[in-house]
Amino acid sequence: MEITALGWGLTIGLIAALFVLDLGMGVLRPHHVGFKEAAAWSTFYILIALGFGVVLATQVGWDYGGQYFAGYIVEKSLSVDNLFVFVIIMSTFAVPDRFQQEVLTFGILLALILRAILIALGATLLSLFSFMFLLFGLLLLWTAVQLFRHRNEDPHVDDNLLVRAARRFLPVTDEYVDGHMITKVDGRRVVTPLFIVLVAIGGTDILFALDSIPAVFGVTQEAYIVFVANAFALLGLRALFFLVTGLLDRLVYLSTGLSLILAFIGVKLILHWAHDLSDAVPVITTPFSLAVIGVILVVTTVASLVKVRRDPTAKAHAGTVVVRRAPGRPAQEQEEE
Rank of each mutant, 00 (worst) to 15 (best):
R164C: 03
E153Y: 06
N152C: 08
L210H: 11
K268I: 04
F169S: 10
V157E: 08
L260Y: 09
R238Y: 15
L140T: 09
Y176H: 03
L251A: 10
R189E: 01
W142E: 04
S259G: 13
D154Q: 07
D178S: 11
V244L: 13
A215F: 09
H272A: 15
L258Q: 01
Q221R: 13
L162V: 14
F169V: 12
W142C: 13
F232Y: 10
D174A: 08
H272M: 14
D186L: 07
H180W: 04
P171C: 11
V185D: 06
A166N: 11
T204I: 04
T204G: 03
G137S: 12
L240A: 08
I201K: 05
G202S: 13
I196R: 04
N160T: 00
T220H: 03
L135M: 13
Y224P: 02
D249C: 06
D211K: 14
D158H: 11
L260N: 12
P193C: 01
R151P: 00
I182V: 12
K184Y: 11
L240Q: 12
P171T: 09
W273L: 07
I196E: 13
D174P: 00
L262N: 15
A274T: 03
A144P: 06
A223S: 15
Q221V: 08
I206D: 09
L269M: 13
V252E: 01
F208T: 05
L243Q: 05
L140D: 09
V219P: 09
R168W: 12
V163T: 03
D158K: 06
V216I: 15
L271Q: 01
L194G: 03
V199T: 13
F195I: 00
G202A: 14
R164L: 04
L260D: 12
A239S: 15
G203E: 07
S259A: 05
A166L: 02
G203P: 01
E175M: 00
G203N: 11
P155N: 00
P193G: 04
F136Y: 14
A215P: 14
S255K: 07
I206N: 05
P171A: 15
P193W: 02
V228T: 10
A231D: 01
R164T: 04
H272F: 11
E153T: 02
R189L: 09
M181R: 07
E222N: 15
A209V: 12
A233I: 14
L198E: 03
A263F: 00
R167D: 10
D178W: 01
A166I: 06
V199L: 07
L237K: 06
Y176S: 01
A165H: 10
A239L: 04
V216C: 06
G236D: 01
F227R: 09
S259P: 14
L235R: 06
T204Q: 15
